[in-house]
């Protein structure tokens, strides 16, 4: 049984995202423990990929650092299994489809279960292609998290209707900051449609939004994904990231409460 619903029992959920193995596996493990203590409700770990298409420069650089340090899916599974004894919050892995496919779909999903990973985010697996791994995820009790965007509201009912774990909205502020004229109410409409079609919690990933924007967004949904700012702290502090990242988590948890 997935532990993901536990993440939403403590007010607005704070979901930090870090890239696994950036700058080392030891730091990733330390960060997971420190972030839980500081108030994180669910932790998302990205498996580094050579070509994270359509990610910010911050995320691309984190991927490069992790790969340069020799991080692999196997090492992250081992780390996840090891850290299970120390933490209680659920862990979700983020992986590009090729990492799962090339590893062996069933082998990958089975190792998620064995390592205590409760969910998977696959950024390049839209609704139309989710059959690629959905049966295996169901078989092993791994929640395949669905992503949604406000610019395609006509797709939300379909996506939400078959969602697992939680629904994650990607904010145009982060991804489409250059595009003017998009309105915030796109987000409100998206969340409304998601709730009408699913009983699952809805969270938002505000990308590089400001604290004020994040607070306003948190008021509309059940939780916030925080990645960009944390990855920047890790880039800046390297092996000494745990303290500044924990401080950031505490402040953010308080801000979105």
């Amino acid at each position: 049984m997935s532990k993901i619903k536990n993440a939403f029992k403590n007010g607005k959920a704070l979901i930090p995202f870090i890239t696994g193995g950036d700058p080392s596996l030891e730091v990733t493990e330390e960060l997971i423990c420190a972030m839980e203590k500081a108030g994180a409700d669910l932790i998302e770990i990205g498996i580094p990929f050579s070509d994270p298409v359509a990610e910010s420069v911050t995320v691309q650089e984190a991927n490069e650092r992790a790969l340069a340090a020799g991080c692999t899916a196997d090492k992250l599974f081992d780390m996840a299994a090891k850290v299970q004894g120390k933490i209680h919050v659920p862990l979700v892995f983020m992986a590009y489809a090729n990492l799962i496919y090339t590893y062996g779909k069933e082998k990958f999903i089975k190792r998620c279960r064995e390592s205590g990973v409760d969910g998977l985010v696959v950024p390049d697996l839209p609704f139309e292609e989710k059959g690629e791994i959905f049966p295996e995820c169901e078989q092993y009790g791994i929640d395949l998290i669905s992503l949604m965007v406000p610019s395609s509201c006509e797709r939300i009912a379909m996506i939400a209707g078959e969602a697992r774990g939680f629904l994650c909205g990607i904010s145009p502020m982060g991804v489409a900051e250059t595009e003017k004229g998009r309105k915030r109410n796109g987000i409100e409409e998206m969340l409304k449609l998601a709730r009408e079609n699913s009983g699952l919690p809805c969270v938002m990933d505000p990308g590089s939004g400001t604290l004020e924007q994040v607070k306003a967004m948190a008021a509309l949904c059940d939780g916030i994904v925080a990645g960009e700012a944390i990855l920047k702290l890790v880039a800046q502090h390297g092996k000494d990231s745990a303290v500044p990242v924990a401080e950031y988590i505490r402040a953010m948890k308080e801000a979105i409460a």
């Binding site: 298409v53 359509a54 489809a97 950024p123 390049d124 697996l125 839209p126 609704f127 139309e128 292609e129 992503l147 949604m148 965007v149 610019s151 395609s152 797709r155 996506i159 990607i170 991804v175 489409a176």
Partner: peptide
């Protein structure tokens, strides 16, 4: 083949 792209590209 297929359409293995981020949700944000699907509408385009």
């Amino acid at each position: 083949g297929g359409q293995y792209i981020p949700e944000i590209l699907m509408s385009a």
